[in-house]
């Protein structure tokens, strides 16, 4: 009798799991950046312009992480 029994088989590409993991960080990051910007604009509406620029920098850095995470699919598979 066979010593090992296959209970479940997983098919597909492991890169999909990688993308899921890569999405967690930027999602939390952008959530915090945008949430804090809304908070700031609500407290001081006259600073909206400045806060938009700072928010943009925050989004740019977090989305860079996501882009690189997704683009790794090109070489690591």
């Amino acid at each position: 009798m066979d010593a090992t029994t296959v209970l479940a088989e997983i098919n597909g590409n492991i890169a999909t799991v990688g993308y899921g993991l890569a999405a967690i960080g930027p999602a939390i990051g952008v959530g915090i950046v945008v949430g804090k910007t809304i908070e700031g604009v609500a407290r001081q509406p006259e600073l909206a312009g400045r806060l938009q620029v700072l928010m943009y920098i925050g989004i740019a850095f977090t989305e860079a992480l996501a882009f690189i995470g997704i683009a790794t699919y090109f070489i690591f598979v």
Partner: peptide, 18 residues
Amino acid sequence: LIVDVVVVATSRMSYASD
């Protein structure tokens, strides 16, 4: 990213402008 940081760092924006 470098362009963003350089442009924002060198741009002039007044406080309480809007």
